[in-house]
Design a protein around this nucleic acid. Structure first.
Lengths: 388, 388
DNA sequence: ATCATTAATTAATTGTGTCAAGAATTGAAT
DNA sequence: ATTCAATTCTTGACACAATTAATTAATGAT
């Protein structure tokens, strides 16, 4: 049975408890009957599984206000008390830490940035500990009701053991970060790859809620993809999965830092766009903002650069959808704010190259605030608490 | 509890029974202790779950011959009695039916081909029924101990309902083939997409046995891919998954019959190779065999055609592996017999374009006899009988 | 008021799988 | 030979989860 005071992994006592708690968490206020209908459990099982969470204050019974159906006892919907527990999410980037405090729905309540002076482990770890202290210090309730933390960074991360196997951008190899932070902060720490963490957030609290199989594509400095197949985040042997950025779409195209040629990332990453725009505009020190301004201003060469990037992303999406067959795809990332410039081209190429009915797969293209990465980390912490 | 006389789907009584039976089936003779260790069940549970299958004659206890360990009671390994039950597998192609009788391990015992005069449903169904009669008539034991049949064809197939949603090559749409054949033959019939069926065979009885995630790529008239992720065959929303043949790898390349451009299939399918070889050799009526002969004879233009095909397949493989991250990949198909001509190019391109450690993913390239497709169908029937 | 209807709870039942103890079968030590 | 240790398998008692069926609860319609 669910044991709130413990807060170790595996507080959940039974499959039914896990099912009920996740259903209430992701499907908002919902009556016991509906949970039973939705999950296939019996009503009795739902009643029993919900009780410990009600007792512990995670779930509350709402007084029913909506008089919908005609006769019959009105349902008393179960709702999550989102502020019963808080979570810390940390995203490590090359030059800064982004930290957030969230509620149980992984809604961001508070956020702080911190620049990172060096990539030495001790320094980064100390900065994280300090940032956590600052985040929790913002409100006494945070310190009191926070027990779990998620940390996300790019690279090959082993969530089970909490180690960074290999992260090129920060130069770490086989570092036991989670154990260290659990000791130093007193928060149970879960480590996860950043794209996978974002995918978990989307699966539990975003567009992935009702789908067994979907994909999240991030476009920005890198181009990545989190895949959920059959309700499970795809891990990938050899530490590789969802590398849509390295799908070869332009045979004999520009060389990519991965060693291949014509990868999506070699054409459509922020860096690639800036480099191509510099050549097109003939300006050595042109920035991404400049490129966007030129394209919006009608500069043909730079518009062409964005169009090619959109085309490459569309090809990568088509490859992914033809192979994996997700129900829907979310395209997101830091840069998507400007990406009105190639959304059209993405869609057009995708529809042209998607196989048969797969062209019907809906693409949601929307921007991604930087804090969302840290939110993903927090979502992983939430998931850790409520998964068997 | 497992009920042998019934032979409906769901003869299996409990998860433990399903686990034990599949372990014995796929891991050959194995002691109860090893099953327990391997599956996490208790020894007691294994003993209990194995009993009904022993009683029904599906499993027998082998007298232990291998004196391996020092002391202790010797194990009495459990082995499948492969000839306790037979299965029929049918593969429908454009111009013929291929039928096989297999044992419980999906080993082919007997096979027959039959040319198909027309694609009209009634005709095809009648031919299948007749072929089944012929197959089972070959040995009285077959007729006596066969209760399940698998049927495979390319296209969008709904296994659960046993209907062909849409199969372009034969021109069927929403046809309830399984129900019809179950009635007409008296064999419980399971319908499945041909590539998925082959994948199931590989998962249960081939290289997929010890892997949670792997891929099977078929190269021939079409180029397809069956994916197993987390132990489950990937289905794909919109009836599309594993369409590696329609991954766009040559931007602006030759048009494909799917409407896209530069698909793997537009470069590396048998048809595409023949067409390109005709242009290279300047011979209008050249066949695949001629092309192979020319290439082996050193004709530069035709060798180039095969090399380009291998390159396209390698790019498709790299895209798939980068996205899905399988533990291993099996490349197979009708044509692979000749494919010494581009195996080298496939491997070279794959290694160049696979991301980071994914290049270590082992590729097994091996030919595929035509009957293997029908064997896949039979494997699906076996799986149906022993899955909860 | 009474009844029909739907929601939630309770109690009895079913059934799976674990645990712990014991039986079976061998090799090694005395 | 006999005892002991090691290992496999079996058995029966038990814990526990989840279902079913019956009960209580709360509402609208007649």
């Amino acid at each position: 049975m669910f044991q709130p005071p413990t807060f170790t992994r595996g507080s959940i006592g039974s499959p039914a408890e896990a099912t009920v708690i996740t259903t209430v968490l992701t499907r908002g206020p919902i009556s016991r009957v509906d949970i039973a209908r939705m999950t296939g459990l019996s009503q009795a099982a739902v009643t029993k599984a919900a009780r410990p969470f009600i007792d512990a204050g995670y779930i509350e019974e709402l007084p029913n206000r909506e008089r919908t159906a005609g006769a019959g006892r009105p349902a008393s919907p179960l709702a999550f008390r989102a502020d019963r527990e808080f979570f810390v999410g940390i995203k490590i980037t090359s030059d800064e830490l982004i930290g957030v405090v969230t509620d149980l729905r992984a809604q961001i309540l508070h956020s702080r940035h911190r620049t990172l002076g060096s990539h030495v482990f001790d320094h980064v770890a100390a900065q994280i500990v300090d940032l956590v202290g600052e985040l929790l210090g913002h409100d006494p309730a945070y310190r009191e009701r926070t027990h779990c933390m998620g940390v996300a960074l790019s690279g090959d991360v082993d969530r089970a053991s909490g180690t960074v196997r290999y992260s090129p951008f920060i130069g770490w190899k086989d570092v036991e970060l989670a154990a260290h932070l659990t000791r130093a902060t007193g928060l149970i720490t879960t480590l996860e790859n950043d794209v996978k963490a974002l995918t978990v957030a989307e699966q539990w609290f975003g567009e992935g809620v009702d789908t067994a199989t979907f994909a999240l594509v991030t476009v920005g400095a890198g181009i990545g993809c989190g895949l959920v197949v059959g309700g499970q985040v795809v891990g990938g042997a050899y530490g590789v999965a969802g590398e849509i950025g390295h799908v070869p779409v332009a045979d004999g195209g520009p060389p990519c830092h991965c060693g291949g040629r014509g990868c999506v990332e070699a054409i459509a990453s922020t860096e690639a766009i800036v480099a191509a725009s510099r050549r097109a505009a003939g300006r050595e020190n042109l920035t991404m903002d400049d490129a966007v301004a030129l394209a919006r201003g009608g500069h043909e060469g730079v518009r062409e650069v964005f169009s090619r990037a959109g085309h490459a992303i569309g090809l990568g999406l088509a490859a992914m959808v033809n192979l994996v067959g997700p129900e829907r795809v979310v395209v997101s990332g830091e840069g998507v704010a400007n990406y009105d410039l190639f959304e059209e081209q993405i869609r057009q190429t995708f529809v042209a190259q998607a196989f048969a009915a797969a062209a019907k797969c809906p693409l949601s293209i929307r921007p991604l605030p930087f804090e969302a990465w840290a939110r993903g980390a927090a979502a992983v912490a939430v998931q850790t608490l409520f998964t068997l």
